[in-house]
Amino acid sequence: MLARPKILSEADGDCVGIERIHGRSPVLLICEHASNALPAVFGDLGLPNEALSSHIAWDPGALAVARILSEALDATLVYQRFSRLIYDCNRPPSSPGAMPETSEIYAIAGNKDLSPEERLARTDALYVPFHDAIRGLIRDRRARGQDSIIVTMHSFTPVYHGRERAVELGILHDEDSRLADRMLRAAAAAPLYRTERNEPYGPEDGVTHTLILHGLSNGLRNVMIEVRNDLIADDIGQGVMADYLKGLLQQSLDA
């Protein structure tokens, strides 16, 4: 058996970030695409800086909004500290999208023709500890009688493959739509943003992996939030969006 390549150095640090670990809210915020950082061993993956700063490498603004929500709700936040170009933690290891060879218009040279050992090394270094950390939090919260409600935070580009997207806020779900239904009703009553169900992606696009893994499998209420990233490009936009989402969540949980 060939040795697995080393993914993270001591300088890279841990792949999992956890904030407000003792938060009292039942909401457990998860941000899989929080960062565009690459472990040092990968260099730039053969990509130009414009690609590495774009939406193909991360979800711009998503972590900032999640952090504001975490503070406002007193909710625990878990996020991945490395780019989804190395491993997309919202995809299972069997998915081609977990370590994509292309993303929109970019060919990712550093992901081309990965060996089984290279794929397994990335899975073990990034995917496994990230989701193990979430499992551990859910288990510990349950042990002390605290409920968990899974809320994943994402952002999306306003223009994809040359097509403009009119939707501004997406409320996504898989088979369990309990929380999404309530949030959509709350959004319809206070329509600050153009809000749609399962847009600009849906379960058929394979984007509900984290919801299935930690929400559906545990019988926990869950929802995935997608925000158009031009709306959260600065502090003001991030604050306004976080305050709006806080209201939707609180109304939905109170209901």
Score class of each variant (00 low, 15 high):
5 P>A: 12
6 K>M: 12
10 E>V: 02
13 G>S: 10
13 G>N: 07
13 G>K: 14
17 G>M: 09
19 E>F: 09
20 R>E: 10
20 R>K: 14
22 H>R: 12
25 S>D: 15
25 S>R: 00
31 C>T: 14
34 A>K: 05
34 A>H: 09
40 A>S: 15
43 G>F: 03
46 G>V: 08
51 A>M: 05
51 A>T: 03
54 S>I: 02
55 H>V: 07
55 H>I: 04
64 A>N: 12
70 S>F: 10
70 S>C: 07
77 L>R: 03
77 L>P: 04
77 L>F: 11
81 R>L: 06
81 R>G: 00
89 C>M: 10
90 N>H: 03
93 P>R: 11
97 G>V: 00
100 P>T: 04
104 E>G: 14
107 A>V: 15
108 I>D: 11
114 L>N: 06
127 Y>E: 08
127 Y>A: 10
128 V>C: 07
130 F>T: 06
132 D>L: 05
135 R>K: 12
137 L>C: 07
138 I>F: 01
141 R>V: 07
141 R>L: 06
142 R>L: 04
143 A>H: 06
147 D>T: 13
153 M>Q: 14
154 H>Y: 04
154 H>S: 08
154 H>F: 10
158 P>H: 11
161 H>V: 01
171 I>L: 15
174 D>L: 01
176 D>L: 05
177 S>F: 02
179 L>G: 01
180 A>I: 06
182 R>T: 05
194 R>T: 11
194 R>A: 11
198 N>L: 05
199 E>M: 15
202 G>Y: 05
202 G>W: 03
206 G>M: 08
206 G>T: 03
208 T>N: 08
209 H>V: 08
218 N>W: 00
219 G>E: 14
227 V>I: 15
227 V>Y: 06
228 R>N: 06
229 N>W: 10
231 L>H: 09
232 I>W: 13
232 I>L: 13
234 D>L: 11
238 Q>R: 15
239 G>A: 13
240 V>L: 15
245 L>V: 13
246 K>R: 15
248 L>K: 02
254 D>C: 01
